Computed example of a mutant assay.
Amino acid sequence: MPAGNQTLLKQNNQRAIAKYIIEHGPISRADLSKKLSISKPTVSANITALIERDLLMEIGFSESEIGKKPMLVDFNKNVRYVLVLDFISYITRGRIPVAVCNLYCEPIFIDFISLPPDFSGAWIDSEVPRQIDALCKAHHIPHEQIGKLVITAPTSCYDEQHIPFECRNGDKINLADVFHEQFAGKIAVKNDIDLAALGEKHFGVGKHVDNLLFAWIGLAIGGGLILNGNLYEGHAHSGGELAYSIVYNDWLHRYDELQNITSLEGIRRYIAAHPEEAAASVLAPHFKNDTFYLDMMIEAAANGDIFCIQFAKDTARVVARVIANLAYTLNLQMVIIGGEYTGFGSILTDTVMHCLAQIPLPPPAVTIPFYTNSAMYGAFRFGADSILKTLI
């Protein structure tokens, strides 16, 4: 056999061995030979090579067999780590969540970096890397064992060389430059809702379905698609995006983008289109002075404010049409709804379910996320998969 073919065969055997152990857990060399239909000498030689690369490790003798007990081998889940930085939360919470997991997506730690009120580009450039180093050292994570840095961002631009970020003081910086020295060649940027869909598919409410939509309904709109068990992004990384869906705006009697309806400006237009009803709301003074925010409307609706309840119902109907079209076009099994508008509770989810039920086909399940930060767990999965592809 030519040398090139031998090398390829060796690589394929090692991938098959590592993949089986990752999926099924510790196993003996003899049992692995039977499971994979690979000769015992070949299995043994490849396991030795994988142990030398620190990808596999011997963990002790089997306790379940009679007679001479075989040595078990397992995958070294701590050979590399995934570092995740969530650059979404700074907008609402004034902090950057930081997390590290191993290759089985088991969190080593989840923490955060607090941001000063008027942080600058210089502060990000110096403090964020320093605090990341401190957190990793505190949890005994060697810098060289971080195999992937995944940055979650509200963007469909996945250029590792250019990650635009605006600081509180107005500075505009490139996050790729901040982390290039430490993590050159290891940086990935992924859309936060895509990662949320991935997180719910593998760890949350979507574990038992292969086709789902994660719809983020808030002042900003987003969507992530899982099709046939895999994240679907499309050629422009915008698969499942809902923001630019064209819908009919019932109160303005015109077609509009969905993002223009749920946004703060969209709420203002709704108030202006219903002046008498808005004037009867408990929030009327705030509407008049433009000092309201969405959480105030959610609270008022919960307390029975008729105008805020009607706003929630009208907006939910528009959202439901978009979700229904996508759900039935792609024959989805599940729709997961997250975002600030879920604060309206059943007004939103029941309206979506009612709309889906109008079409004479089996409707997808409608639910809310299992995790409050599904994107973090999606980033774990994406990062671990990316590392495994390069290691094995």
Rank of each mutant, 00 (worst) to 15 (best):
E277K: 11
T367W: 00
V84G: 12
A279P: 04
E23L: 13
V352W: 01
F203A: 11
V366I: 14
K77W: 04
E52L: 08
R269V: 12
T262R: 03
K69N: 12
I132L: 08
D350S: 12
A379Q: 04
E127D: 08
V84L: 07
I88P: 01
V98N: 05
L135E: 06
S33T: 07
V247A: 15
Q333V: 09
A188I: 10
A134F: 02
S386C: 08
K77Q: 13
T92G: 14
E127F: 02
A196W: 00
I27K: 03
N249S: 12
S28Y: 02
Y244C: 15
G239S: 07
V178P: 00
G240A: 02
I267R: 01
K172N: 12
P2L: 11
I91G: 14
G343C: 06
I309N: 09
A300E: 03
D118S: 13
K19Q: 15
K389F: 02
D290W: 06
A176C: 11
A327Q: 01
A236T: 11
Q11W: 01
V178Y: 00
A324G: 07
E65Q: 10
H208S: 15
D86Y: 00
E276W: 01
L115I: 05
I163T: 05
D118G: 13
I267E: 03
V84E: 05
D290A: 15
M334L: 14
T349V: 04
S374Y: 00
I387L: 02
P129V: 05
G206L: 01
Y248G: 06
D159G: 10
Y248A: 10
G25W: 03
T155N: 08
F109P: 04
Y377E: 03
E63N: 14
N260A: 12
A122C: 10
S37A: 15
F61V: 14
M376F: 06
I347G: 03
V73M: 11
A243V: 10
A197W: 00
N331R: 06
G206N: 04
H140P: 09
M353A: 13
G339H: 00
L391T: 07
T262P: 04
V335W: 00
V319S: 06
P41S: 11
E257M: 09
